[in-house]
Design a protein around this nucleic acid. Structure first.
Length: 424
DNA sequence: TCTGGGGTCCTAGGACCC
DNA sequence: TCTGGGGTCCTAGGACCC
């Protein structure tokens, strides 16, 4: 059996941990740039705050109802996530960290009759040791476990935030009660197609032939989905950490940006950030892509599909060094930039990643860059142990006037000494 | 006025090779 | 009018996830 452990309203729960006065009170957390609502407590949901909606649209109801609002504080969430995952690892041998607030567990060694007690114990321990409450869904496959978890969350009181689909009967009833658009692996566009074809429940989808899924739902992806719904595992546990194949850093600007030098500052800053991620996994990158998103005149139409222009360059040899990445990236900015236009977003992507240790030599590139590697490590260590960006490259700018808004961020309670909470 | 950021996998189709 | 067959590699784009 597979279990999925999912932290309840994770970001809100993290904020509340350090603000006990907000327990049982409505809370929401905003995305970067204070743009959208990306986490909301049950109380906020009951007051009618939608998930994923723009902050400015929810603002009225938020102010009227006195809902507490936080900008996102990823230092805090990342650290709390780590604590939750370490707790799970101490309770279960096979853990796959799936996202910042979710993990799959392999419980196949637990006898069926012991499952309810076992799962309850996991839930209680996590809450006791980290202060974060979780929901747990258990079933024969990952997809069904996600479904079980969904059902557990739907009615927390009755389920105690735990749902186990152990028998065929339970699987069938659960699938019959679930609409296709609520299934893990069915997004908007497949949901529309399925409903068009008259397939509305998870149960109906699970009855479709695999060949049909192959030709109508993205080939092997659809086949796997159907198998999983039938209780045949098609998604295995992936426990070991795998290196990223692509690393991106992209941000909206706090205000429209039209000056070339500001765009360059932003891109240099993003490259620095991406290169840190690159070195953390001991990789080097050979391909750099840069993209700019222009601020559209008519922001009502398709704001997400704003005119994006992008370009990329392949280096002669892969590198993990910030300055070697910044220079070509800035040349790309110059190519892409159009005078007079204003931009709302920029981003960089590093790909063609290879292990740093085995970077292929190239006759035409000077070797002996060990000193630079050492310098990069030093800078990373300083930035990690002190405030962000204590040491940085001049090209990333000093003022950063264009930086995203984050007006309502809480303290970094668990990762910064100076933000440590005091208890009377 | 104000709409996030970062990933993965898969397929189709073109270029190229023998 | 006729116009092989098969394989690999790469890229763009679609779909999905949290």
């Amino acid at each position: 059996m597979n279990a999925i452990v999912d932290c309840n309203s994770f970001y809100c729960s993290c904020e509340r941990l350090f603000r006990p006065d907000l327990r049982d009170k409505p809370v929401v957390v905003l995305s970067n740039n204070d743009g959208c609502i990306i986490s909301r407590s049950d109380e906020a949901r009951k007051l009618g705050v939608g998930m994923g909606i723009p902050y400015f649209q929810a603002r009225q109801i938020i102010e009227k109802q006195g809902i507490s609002v936080f900008s996102s504080n990823y230092h805090l969430y990342g650290d709390m996530s780590w604590r939750v995952m370490e707790t799970l690892r101490s309770l279960c041998q096979h853990v796959e960290v799936y996202s910042i607030d979710e993990a799959f567990l392999d419980l196949s060694e637990v006898p069926l009759h012991q499952l309810p007690d076992h799962v309850r114990e996991i839930k209680d321990k996590v809450e006791q040791w980290t202060g974060i409450s979780v929901s747990i869904g258990v079933a024969a496959t990952k997809t069904l476990a996600k479904l079980a978890n969904r059902l557990a969350k739907k009615n927390k009181k009755a389920s105690g935030c735990i749902s186990i689909l152990a028998t065929e009967e339970e699987r069938r009833i659960a699938l019959q009660r679930t609409r296709v658009d609520e299934l893990w692996g069915v997004g908007r566009s497949y949901a529309l197609k399925l409903i068009d074809w008259g397939i509305t429940s998870g149960w109906e989808l699970s009855q479709m032939p695999e060949e049909w899924a192959h030709s109508n739902m993205g080939g092997v992806v659809g086949v796997r989905l159907i198998r999983e719904l039938r209780g045949l595992p098609a998604r295995v546990m992936e426990e070991e950490l795998v290196n990223k194949k692509m690393i991106a850093t992209t941000r909206m600007f706090g205000r429209p940006v039209s000056q070339l030098h500001e765009l360059k500052e932003a891109v240099a800053t993003y490259i620095s950030r991406a290169a840190e991620k690159l070195r953390r996994q001991q990789s080097a990158a050979r391909t750099i892509s840069v993209f700019l998103v222009a601020k559209e005149q008519d922001h009502m139409v398709n704001f997400r599909r704003g005119a994006t222009i992008s370009s990329f360059v392949n280096l002669d040899a892969a590198t993990p060094n910030t300055h070697e990445l910044i220079k070509p990236a800035l040349e790309l900015v110059e190519q892409l930039y159009e005078k007079g236009k204003s931009y709302k977003k920029a981003g960089v992507m590093l790909s063609g990643l290879v292990p740093d240790a085995s970077v292929q030599g190239n006759l035409f590139v000077p070797q002996a860059q060990n000193q630079r590697r050492f310098l990069m490590n030093t800078i990373d260590n300083i930035n990690f142990s002190m405030r962000d960006d204590s040491v940085k490259f001049g090209s990333s700018g000093m003022n950063k006037d264009w930086k995203m808004r984050q007006e309502l961020r809480s303290g970094r309670y668990s990762t910064r000494w100076e933000d440590l909470r005091t208890v009377k």
